[in-house]
Nucleic acid binder design. Structure first.
Lengths: 152, 152
DNA sequence: TCACATTTAATTGTTCGCAATTGAATATGG
DNA sequence: CCATATTCAATTGCGAACAATTAAATGTGA
C-alpha cells in the first residue's frame, strides 16, 4: 500500500525533523518557564547554573563550549546572573584574557531549590525514564553529526 | 554492573533531554544558515514560507497555530517578509480582525529555489531517512505531550 | 627581541520569542 | 437591541542568539 504523496514530500513542514526539534525545544521552554520563574532564572541562565553546579570557577569559554554558545550570548547573560548575586566574574591572574565565573553562596544554595525541577519535567513529558534516555542519546548523536558537518 | 552515579543524576546537564533538544535545535540552525542565506531567509521566516507554500492566503492566527508562535513574533517577521516582497498582508473583508497573508509571485517562485535545502540537511545529518522519520515521530509525540501538560 | 598571529571577552546591530497590554471587530446572552 | 465577553493583530519591553568587529593579552617564529 503506497503512502500518501504528502508523507514523502521533503518540503512539507510536518515531514521535517528540524521543525520537530525546533517546536519541541519551544514546548520544553514553556514547561520550564513557571518552574524557573520561582528560581528567578530563564532557561539559558538555568543551563549556565547547571554547568557551574558541576564545576565552579570556570572561564566563559568553557561554559560556551559546554552549551554551544558564544560570548555575544554569554557576556550579557552572565552580567544578569551577577546582578542577581548568583555568580562573581573575575579576571584570571594567570591569563588576563580569561574571565572566571564563580558561584556565590546564593548561587550554590539555589541548587537545592532547583532539585524539584527535573522531576516536574519528567512528569510533564509523560514518558518513561528509559524512553527519554534513549531519545536523548539519539538526539545528541544527531546533534554531534550536525556540528561535525558545519566544519566542512 | 552498576552505572556510574553521574549517569543517574537528574541535575546533570548531559542527562537532560531538554538540553539535547535545545542544543540540537541550535545545531540545525547553524546548518541551515548558509543554505537559507542564499534565499535571503532566516530559519523562522523559512518555516512561515513552508506553511504558505502548502496553503496560501492564510490568517496570521493559522500560521501561529501551525508553528506554535504568537503575533508578537509573527507580526514583525511578516512585515520583514513583506518588505522583501515575498508576501502581501491584507485585512480580511469578512472579518476585519484578521490579516490574511498571501504569497507574491516572488514568494511562489522561491519554492523552486528552496528545493535543494532538504537534501542538504539530510546529507548533513548523516543518517538514513527511515531513522530520521522515526526520530521525528518520537520527538513530535513528546512535544505534543509537553504542550498538553501546559494546559493544566 | 620583535613583528605577527592567535586567543579571549566585550560590544554592536539584527532577528527571534514571549508576556502583557491595547484597540478594534465580532460574537453572545439577556 | 444592547451590554458584555471574546477574538485577533499590533505594540512594548526584555532576554536570548549570533555575526562581525574591537581590544587587550598571550604565543610563536624568524
Amino acid at each position: 500500500m503506497p503512502r500518501k504523496l504528502s508523507t514523502l514530500d521533503p518540503q512539507r513542514l510536518d515531514n521535517q525533523i528540524c521543525f520537530a526539534v525546533y517546536s519541541a525545544a519551544h514546548a520544553f521552554n514553556r514547561v520550564y518557564k513557571p518552574l524557573l520563574d520561582r528560581l528567578g532564572l530563564t532557561y539559558p541562565q538555568y543551563l549556565v547554573m547547571l554547568v557551574l553546579w558541576e564545576r565552579d570557577d570556570v572561564p566563559v569559554k568553557d561554559i560556551g563550549e559546554k552549551l554551544f554558545l558564544d560570548s555575544g550570548t554569554l557576556t550579557p547573560l552572565l552580567k544578569r546572573l551577577e546582578a542577581a548575586h548568583l555568580v562573581k566574574r573575575t579576571r584570571s591572574s594567570e591569563d588576563e584574557r580569561q574571565v572566571l565565573i564563580a558561584l556565590t553562596s546564593q548561587g550554590h544554595a539555589l541548587k537545592e531549590k532547583a532539585r524539584s525541577v527535573p522531576p516536574s519535567i519528567l512528569a510533564a513529558s509523560d514518558c518513561s525514564v528509559s524512553e527519554l534516555v534513549s531519545m536523548k542519546d539519539e538526539i545528541v548523536a544527531l546533534r554531534d553529526r550536525l556540528n561535525a558537518a558545519i566544519g566542512d
